[in-house]
Structures are given as C-alpha cells and as structure tokens.
C-alpha cells in the first residue's frame, strides 16, 4: 500500500528524516511513535505530498508521489491541529469538502455519534478545541477511503468520544482499510494498533507488533518498553 525508500528531509540545517525505509501493507492499524521532534508529522506530511522530500521515494498504491495529486482521492487525512477557516459554519465546511472532493460521503451518522448536531450552524471560530477536533474527525472519516492517515487523533477528546473514535477505527480496519496514526497516548496505541513503528532522530528504530516489542525489550509494560528502545540499539 505505502512503500517508502531512503527518505531524507531537512529543514534548513535541521535534519528531520535521515533515510527512512518502511512499507505498510494493505489492511491493519499502524501506529507511528516517537518523541517530540522525531519526524512523525514530517513523515506523514511527506506521504500526503505536503512536504517534498530531498531524497528518496514514496509510493502509494503504485503511484510514486512527488507532484502527483490524484492518489489523494484514495486517502483521508486528519491534521494534528484542527484549525479551519473561521468564517465558515460547520455544515458549510462539511459540504465544501464534499464538493471539493466530489466523492460520496456519509457524514450524518458521524455527526450524530459525536453529538455535533447543535453545532452545525455555528461558525468554526466560535467552537472549543475539542469540538473542532470532532469536526476534524467527521471530515476525516466521512469518505470511504482505503487509506486513513490520522495525526494525533485523540487530542482534546472527551472519554466518550474517545470510545467512539476507537470503535470507528476498528470498524474501518474490519472493512479492510489501512490506518496510519501517530499518538503519544500509550494506552490508546496498546488498545488499537496492530503494529508500531518507532521513529527517533529521523530513523526507524523499531517496526513490529507490540508483543514483539515487549519480548525484545523484556519489559511487560508498553510505556517502559517504548522508553527502553530509545536507549538501546536498532531493532529493525
């Protein structure tokens, strides 16, 4: 589904990605982990074509992506910071994205699930952070895309929305979709991810299942296991 080879990216003197090689197969939930500034968002944005790599290649569904745009019909993206044009109302934003993509969308059950009905007529600038994140989630999940890329999907959500979110992600997986997400919440990752990818200083330190990670590090707890790989050698 996604194949990344020898990806390099630097911003000014700051090398963010230094030779990332990785592939994600179709179907499954992959969690990209790593400390702040390890290059998670840059990796995600490279796949989206928002960041243009200095070196290396990215192939999504057989398309090598720099300067391509049609492949984005196959993917939905949840940005890390939910900021939208403030002048628009929620319902207008939803119909605008539908219009721009020109694809079938099923937003009504998501609006219901996240209890957004009463906000539909509100302007986006008046919404709270958590509500914006819910709108963000609706936009990301309303299309039937085979690839979902979620950057910190849990941020700002209340517990009941978090439960709904987990349920949605699992349903998407059951439909054979590929979900790529980044998160700092280890419980969330432990509950939901099939495989994790650990990124540190622009390199991949570990890729594999959670059980493999625990076994490798000899730690029973995921949080400790994650902390342990950062201090030892590469496990790719």
């Amino acid at each position: 589904m996604i194949k990344i080879e020898n990806l390099h990216k630097k911003f000014g003197k700051n090398k963010v990605l230094e030779g990332v090689d990785i592939h994600f197969d179709r179907g499954g939930i992959y969690a990209i982990l790593g400390p702040n500034g390890s290059g998670k968002t840059t990796l995600i944005k490279s796949i989206l074509g928002m960041v243009l790599p200095d070196k290396g290649s990215i192939t999504v569904n057989g398309t090598t992506i720099p300067r391509q745009w049609t492949y984005r019909q196959q993917l939905s993206y949840l940005p890390q910071i939910a900021n939208f044009p403030g002048n628009l109302r929620v319902s207008e934003l939803i119909s605008m994205i539908k219009d721009l993509r020109g694809q079938e969308a099923n937003e009504s059950h998501l609006v219901q699930l996240f209890e957004l009905e009463k906000y539909l007529d509100k302007r986006l600038s008046t919404l709270s952070g958590g509500t914006k994140q819910k709108v963000n989630l609706v936009l990301a999940f309303m299309f039937d895309s085979p690839l979902l890329i979620l950057d910190e999907p849990t941020s700002g959500l209340d517990p009941s929305s978090l439960i709904s979110l987990k349920r949605i992600i699992r349903t998407e997986k059951e439909m054979g979709k590929t979900v790529l997400l980044s998160s700092h919440i280890m419980h969330f990752v432990e509950e939901i991810a099939d495989e994790i990818v650990y990124l540190l200083e622009g390199k991949i330190y570990f890729k594999g299942s959670l059980d493999a990670l625990k076994e490798l590090t000899g730690e029973g707890n995921v949080e400790h296991a994650i902390a342990a790989i950062a201090t030892t050698q590469t496990y790719v």
Binding site: M50, W69, R72, P85
Partner: peptide, 15 residues
C-alpha cells in the same frame, strides 16, 4: 488562510 490552505493541500487537488 494558512489552515485553509493546509486543509486543501491534503485533498485531491492540484497545488
């Protein structure tokens, strides 16, 4: 309109 631009960049639209 930075946010708006970023929202659009992730959609299947030419830059």
């Amino acid at each position: 309109s930075k946010e708006f631009t970023e929202l659009l960049l992730a959609q299947p639209i030419r830059r």
